[in-house]
Design a binder for these strands. Structure first.
Lengths: 248, 248
DNA sequence: CCGTCATTCTGGTCTATACCAGATGAGCGG
DNA sequence: CCGCTCATCTGGTATAGACCAGAATGACGG
């Protein structure tokens, strides 16, 4: 085996690269060349290992690379699939997930997982400016694109500013509800985002293994009078979106 | 060992979690509790494996989880280190890396790796609106925080708009140079960013292994007359920054 | 026709071991 | 005192196996 690798080295300038990177590149080329269209299942790890003359462990290293690059994703114990193009998302402007997804020719689904009246804790207090113990409505939703769950979110709504908010149907667009029912125009937004791993409540909700790479996005929205309206915490699968904003 | 795990299951609701996640949590707690301050080196993988009664492979799984969460980072063949807090970065507004880093009590370093006059290729043409084959100046820099390389960038400057730009010292702030020397006020920015893995030219420049998680940020800036000025491509280590922007 | 169940496939977790290559630091020789 | 060499540390790569648990499938029985 070692001898075989060395021989390939002389033929191919990239040959000195580690085996798992060469496996990665071979698979990446197959994807690039369109041999494996989006959402296609890859051959199983055992078969890939055999095809590339190596073991499952090394094959999994190669697959992890492609996953980190956002080229493939996994579906729990079902296999590895080719990632479709990223959703273009402008968190400063996009009010409706559904409209945005539809506009890009994809099929959106929103599921409301839970609606819970609760109280402001220390973290919420610093984010919203409300006092600890104030009432707040927590809404947890999952969003899908083309049948794949890609994001879970926690939304915290200010019941003082939005009386009766907990009685509405949250499967429709929240922003339309705010505008039409409460005449809220969101003026000020504070947005924060950073890459991180998705751990347990979120990973489980999305049906991925703990530690899958994600993007955390949070938005704090206020009305024209600077009154806190809603705080949004989004956990995206890292390969599913591309943030794009324009200034000026 | 299996029996022992099963027994813990009954005692502890978390006990059913896989071993590598329990190792992860134990290490995470040590970091959280301040036993391991930022930039401290963790014990070696072999020692950690022994301490937690497992093998290096499983230990590395736990470390990879913490790395994905941005809690630890690795320095090539030197060991694993606790991540310092993320740099707060506003790509819509921050003109100077150095000023921003200094303002957060950290020590910035900028290194110019290469300055190359070149020509607009297909990708640059679509991004900038210039024609393929137009002259353009490529500048490659590496940036450090507290001695750790955290980002490499490719900057493409329009020599038509910025005559003589290739003769300047690029270790100072580019934005100040543009404003003071060319009276450029950047008006329009198109920003795009998404999480991805850092692969070879970037991974090598940052001294990390290929496949390390990163954040790709690109900015295309124009002047008040909508004339293309500069395009910026940034490759950040994913655990080093937190994007924050305000709107309205 | 529709559920049920067992088989089979998948990735998920884990052990034990080996060798390699870069980084480091101690010690030696100039 | 400086610079070099070399042993020793680190993580990086790789093999060969094993068992588990969830998902999918197809046969079977109602």
């Amino acid at each position: 085996m070692v001898g075989k690798q060395k021989m390939e080295d002389r033929v191919n300038g990239e040959g000195s690269a580690p085996l798992y990177l060469r496996v990665r590149d071979r698979l990446a080329n197959q994807i690039q060349d369109g041999l494996l269209p989006p959402n296609t299942r890859l051959p199983s790890e055992r078969i890939l290992a055999e095809e590339h003359g190596t073991t499952r462990v090394t094959t999994r290293l190669a697959l992890a690379q492609l996953e980190a690059e956002g080229r493939i994703y996994r579906s729990n114990r079902r296999g590895w699939f080719v990632s479709p193009p990223r959703l273009v998302y402008n968190p400063t402007r996009d009010y409706s997930f559904s409209d945005n997804v539809s506009a890009q020719g994809r099929v959106p689904v929103t599921e409301t997982l839970r609606v819970t009246p609760t109280e402001v804790d220390a973290w919420l207090a610093t984010m919203t400016g409300l006092a600890i113990g104030d009432p707040i409505v927590r809404l947890r939703r999952r969003r899908q694109i083309d049948g794949r769950p890609v994001m879970v979110e926690n939304i915290y709504l200010n019941p003082k500013r939005l009386p009766g908010i907990d009685t509405f149907d949250f499967n429709r667009s929240l922003w339309k509800l705010l505008r039409e029912h409460y005449s809220v125009e969101l003026e000020r937004k504070q947005i924060e985002m950073f890459p991180t791993a998705l751990v347990d409540p979120q990973a489980e909700a999305l049906g991925v293994t703990a530690g899958t790479a994600g993007l955390y996005v949070t938005r704090c929205c206020r009305d024209a009078q600077d009154c806190f309206v809603e705080l949004d915490e989004e956990f995206w699968l890292h390969d599913t979106l591309s943030i794009q904003v324009s200034v000026g």
